[in-house]
Write a protein that binds this DNA or RNA. Structure first.
Lengths: 221, 221
DNA sequence: AGAGAAACGGAGGGGAGACTCTGGTTGGCC
DNA sequence: GGCCAACCAGAGTCTCCCCTCCGTTTCTCT
């Protein structure tokens, strides 16, 4: 189809689009990608039809919302590649990845999905995987990373980290830090007993839930 | 309420109850706890009302279905405590735990929920946590387990392992084995570069999905 | 074998969420 | 300033899922 020279979009449309994306980012980050489109529209202060005019399906809203986060991830990877010490860059990237992932429930889900078979960001994922493979190669050559580390271990880290949840940001962050620290020590080819970050408070937290059935306890009615 | 001396249940009722539990176990294991009650009833070969007669709420069906799995877990913990080498028992338990969890998607979700704040198996969870703390104490005292390992690190392992998925049982099992091996090496107080289990094939697997929106790709209709 | 209660099965109530249809409203170009 | 298309908003549809009501079947006890 030829590029229809449609007039440039109206200013209110651009304004609403921005508001929708901001609302979606914050709501997805806080509650995950299962929140309803209605809730996002309310948070953005627009009608549900306006939301669907800009993003005809939820998946497109997700893609648009998290492409920025993905860019942050990719630039963290490039920063790691620019580090003169590849092993230090590798460790920093693992930590940054875990941190980014745990601070945004929506990004966590989308990112995990992308690395476990989804096709949402397939092109970007493959580019990032290749860059990471290069980082791992250098870290093995320069020393620090164990030689039997493989590319799929990155997926393992992402999947494992995606399981981390807590009812407060601080707890989740502490858990992600501790997990990444354990991973890094396990990935090291000369493991010494380095100090771990403080232990996270993970459970029990009676206020979480999240499976979604009706009754809240086992009381038989 | 006094124990009403109701007559013993009918044979067909017991038969159906057994069929329902078998079907629930297999369907939950295969597809997770989000499957509909209708699907479980069909798999069991009973009507939906029969299912609800035996288990008035989905939560009760889950509890009944997975109490057996939990028992397996607890007995694995006791076996670990009976091992004359506490560190070996500890490592075996971590591996067994990861294996059990990844082989059953339903158990994975329920177990993860129990350890991250749910109250479904709260009593059993607390008992198991205390037993595990004793195992960890012995493993520290006898040598093997690093001294800064804490009880909540068990929750960390469970949460991390709950993130593992793959589209085949073998891949998931391989991933869980590799993850638990990494964990054990990170938990060791005298880490030596032991061999890892073979690397898992985790992604990309185009057939997974699991988020649950309508459109399957980004094609604008 | 026959009565009666327990169990069975499917239709449907109630709610939630993704997505559209129909008017009213407003910004951009002449 | 005026026209008109683009835009906005809420009510409505369609589907799915948890759970219940009621007529029918089947087991059990005598």
């Amino acid at each position: 189809m030829p590029p229809k020279p449609s007039r440039k979009p109206r200013s209110d449309a651009l304004y609403n689009r921005r508001r929708i994306l901001d609302a979606a980012r914050s709501v997805f980050a806080e509650k995950g990608i299962e929140v309803s489109m209605t809730e996002i529209a309310q948070r953005a202060g627009v009608g549900i039809a306006t939301l669907y005019r800009h993003f005809p399906a939820k998946e497109e809203l997700l893609a648009e919302t998290f492409s920025g986060q993905l860019e942050i991830c990719v630039s963290a990877l490039h920063a790691a590649l620019d580090d003169p010490d590849p092993w230090r860059g590798f460790c920093g990237f693992i930590e940054k990845l875990c941190t980014l992932q745990v601070q945004d429930r929506g990004f966590n889900a989308v990112f995990r999905e992308a690395f476990s078979g989804g096709d949402l960001f397939e092109k970007e994922r493959i580019r990032a995987e290749n860059a990471f493979a290069e980082l791992a190669r250098r870290a093995k050559a320069a020393g620090g990373l164990r030689p039997d580390f493989v590319r799929d271990d990155l997926t393992l880290v992402i999947m494992a980290n995606s399981g981390i949840t807590a009812d407060s940001q601080e707890d989740a962050l502490a858990a992600a830090r501790r997990l990444s620290s354990y991973f890094i020590q396990a990935f090291s080819d000369a493991p010494e007993l380095g100090p771990l970050p403080p232990a996270p408070r993970l459970g029990p937290h009676p206020a979480l839930r999240g499976i979604g059935w009706k009754g809240s306890s086992v009381s038989v009615g």
